[in-house]
Computed example of a mutant assay.
Amino acid sequence: MFRIALILGLMSAVGPFAIDMYLPALPLIAQDLNASVAAVQGTITAFFLAFGLSQLVYGPWSDQVGRKVPIYVGLAIFVLGSIGCIWAPTIGWLTAFRFVQGLGAAVVMVLPRAIVRDLYTGNDGTRLMAMIMLVISVSPMLAPLAGSLLLLLTEWRAMFAVFVVTAGASLLMARFALPETLPQDHRVKVNAANLLRGCKILLTDRSFMALTLVGAFGMASFFVFIASGSFVYTGEFGLSPIGFSIAFAINAVGFFGASQMAAPIGERLGMVRVVRLAVLGFAASTLFLLAMGLAGLVNLYVMVGVLFCANGFLGLVIPTTMVLALEEHGDIAGLASSLGGMLQMMIGGLMVTLVGPFFDGTALPMIAAIAVCGVLALGVSSSMIRPQTLPAAS
Rank of each mutant, 00 (worst) to 15 (best):
N194L: 08
V275C: 12
P319M: 00
Q64V: 04
P24T: 07
R113T: 04
M292Y: 07
A369P: 11
M129N: 04
A193E: 15
A130M: 05
P319Y: 00
I91A: 02
D118C: 08
F163T: 03
S245W: 03
L103F: 02
M209G: 00
R206F: 00
K189R: 15
I77K: 09
R206H: 03
C373I: 06
A393N: 14
I242R: 04
F358C: 05
T321P: 02
P387K: 14
S207M: 02
C199I: 07
V253L: 15
L56H: 07
A263H: 11
A258H: 12
L289Y: 08
L287D: 05
L152E: 14
P387L: 11
A105L: 01
G84H: 12
L280I: 06
L196K: 14
M173N: 11
V232E: 06
N34R: 13
V232Q: 05
F256P: 12
A284Y: 01
F223M: 12
Q31P: 00
G293Q: 10
F176H: 15
V37T: 14
G42V: 07
F359S: 11
T204F: 14
N299F: 00
L119N: 06
S207Q: 02
V272T: 13
A284F: 10
G238H: 09
S82E: 11
V40P: 01
G15L: 06
V372N: 04
P387Y: 09
F231P: 07
V73T: 13
G168L: 15
M133S: 08
N299D: 15
R276K: 15
G84A: 13
G361M: 12
P112T: 01
T121W: 00
V100E: 05
T121E: 14
V279F: 05
P24Y: 10
G52I: 12
A88Y: 03
V279S: 10
L142S: 05
S259C: 14
V232H: 05
W156Q: 12
M209W: 03
F244G: 00
A96G: 13
M322P: 00
M131P: 02
A278S: 15
M303S: 11
I347D: 09
M159I: 15
S221R: 01
I265G: 03
G229T: 04
M366Y: 10
F231G: 05
Y22P: 05
A177H: 14
T212D: 02
E180Q: 12
R127E: 03
A278K: 09
M21L: 08
A169P: 08
A30C: 01
L314P: 10
